[in-house]
Design a protein around this nucleic acid. Structure first.
Lengths: 130, 130
DNA sequence: GTAAGTACGTACAAATAGGTAAGTATGAAA
DNA sequence: TTTCATACTTACCTATTTGTACGTACTTAC
């Protein structure tokens, strides 16, 4: 069907499939989180990347940002209805990968000593003459 | 639950969510393709990236590569059973994004003149004292 | 005055993804 | 001999992404 379609589609896919985008969506599937909670929960995010990913997802309408006028700052992030939909699909993909990780690892093992792209399979050629 | 788990999970997710990985998987959901067919179908892929993405997916056990010993070369790519599973989930995500593209675009419009991260919402603070 | 705590922004550097153009191997066709 | 076609590989370069480190605003605690 669609092999590229709207360039915006790729952009959105990038946001939700990005290194931290996936983690944010999955985390928010479990309920609202504040900035620091997300930062602590997801090991290894820099504040810069967390803020940036959060902003993309918010602009795409997937995440709702609510800031309270207190000090020190208190900001809550949650999924919008639209965001829940994508998050579920992203989570489904991520979960599948995790579940089937052993099979992929096994496939990689086999690939190590298997036929390389330069090798060729013996068998009948699909075309005899042009 | 899992916010990073195995580093290999992220790697696999990268492969299937990469710019060309998605397109390859979706294309192969419609049946086997040879290298040049994929290149022509997906506008804008460089041969380098196509080969590289194909190799990653093949190593992960998602794509089956069959090369016939003819000249000029004839190589067919198809999905393995494992590959069909991921492909379906990736396609589900991609399709959803495409379908809901108008809503995302609308959300972005609203975001343009909406509250910026520095703005704050008026309302009761969730905490009064530590 | 200084430090702490929170949610960011920003400048700079490093890493990675991606593109371009060319080369390789092979045998048939011209 | 040169050309063509296919499925790649390689070298080189650019663009995008991500990380590091520091700065900011504001108020309470010391």
């Amino acid at each position: 069907m669609i092999y590229s379609q709207h360039p915006a589609s790729r952009e959105i896919l990038k946001h939700v499939c990005s290194r931290w985008g996936v983690l944010i969506l999955i985390a928010l599937l479990h309920g609202k989180h504040r900035f620091s909670e997300l930062r602590n929960k997801m090991g290894g995010v820099s504040e810069k990347m967390l803020a940036q990913s959060l902003r993309s997802l918010t602009e795409d309408g997937f995440v709702l940002r609510v800031a309270y006028p207190v000090v020190p700052p208190f900001v809550e992030y949650s999924l919008t209805p639209l965001g829940e939909e994508v998050a579920k699909r992203v989570a489904a993909l991520a979960d599948w990968i995790e579940t089937n990780l052993p099979q992929v690892l096994e496939a990689r093992q086999s690939a190590e000593h298997a036929a390389k792209p330069s090798d060729q399979k013996s068998g009948p050629p699909p075309v005899s003459s042009g």
